[in-house]
Amino acid sequence: MAYILNRLLSVLLTLFLISVITFAVTNILPGDVAMMIMGTQSNPEALAGLRETLGLNDPLVVQYGRWIGGLLTGDWGQSLVFKEAIGPLIAQKVVASSLIVVMSMAVALIAAIPLGVWAAVHRDRWQDSTSSTAALVGVSLPDFFWGIMLILLFARALGWLPSSGFVHPGDDFLGAIRHAFLPSLALGLGLMAHLTRMTRATMIGIMGQEFIRVARAKGLSEREVVWSYGLRNAVGPVLTVAGLQIGYLFGSIIVIESLFNFTGMGWLTYQALLNRDIPLIQSTVFVIAAVVMLTNFLVDLLYVVIDPRIRLS
């Protein structure tokens, strides 16, 4: 319990710091919201008037307080580009991006864990070198390369899956999965390679431990020794790394969503940056940071379930 409270406290503290940094950085950028709204050629007096109305002349601390207050009460302001309320806009995009992030993570984990274990058990034999080579190729090539290859193969050549667009899972669940599949795979391949290496290394360490020898000396089958005695110990570290990769995934979706014209958070952030939509930039950056923090917090909670040493200390 103390552990969970501890972690929760640090999550809140980090979120606060992130909000401060986000706010500060967007305020340092040249140009302000008033100028974005009225254009660079606008009348200085009208500009000054708008600044006064928007509260841009207030001290930064007051502006920051107003922003955070809005975030907390659900009033996220208006997007300058989309002329829409930011809150609902982000909510919709978060759903879209979560879909490909969750799917790519699932793809990566489902493939990486067995592959990594397989490589570790057959350490230094052909199985291991095959898996290592494949993983190396996977890690070395950027996501968009895989994206292009997947589009060429599955959309162009085979015509099995759509190459672009987003369908809301509430409207058509299967369609949503079909549209999200290729971007997820493109994101998941690099991640999978990384997690395979990680699983392999962790498993090799664990399989050398004395308790594995004790398990064999009890007469347990090799399957139980590897998949139960060994893997249970490897899951924690692998999931922790996977959790950290969520941040990396949210970074990568900017490229991948643009490539697949998939209108999620990455696409939204890109639009916001392109158009200097300062309120939207602040909110998207903050939301992405918050999602990454929360998933890591969830992984830490999962760790409590997996590892009794943390549960009880």
Binding site: V214, G219, L220, P308
Partner: peptide, 25 residues
């Protein structure tokens, strides 16, 4: 061999700190 290990022959090792699996009761 599996039938024999832990049944006919039992074995104990040097490092009690690492001889037990930390995640099982």
């Amino acid at each position: 061999m599996r039938d024999l290990r832990g049944d006919e022959i039992g074995m104990i090792f040097q490092e009690p700190m690492t001889s037990l699996n930390p995640v099982f009761t």
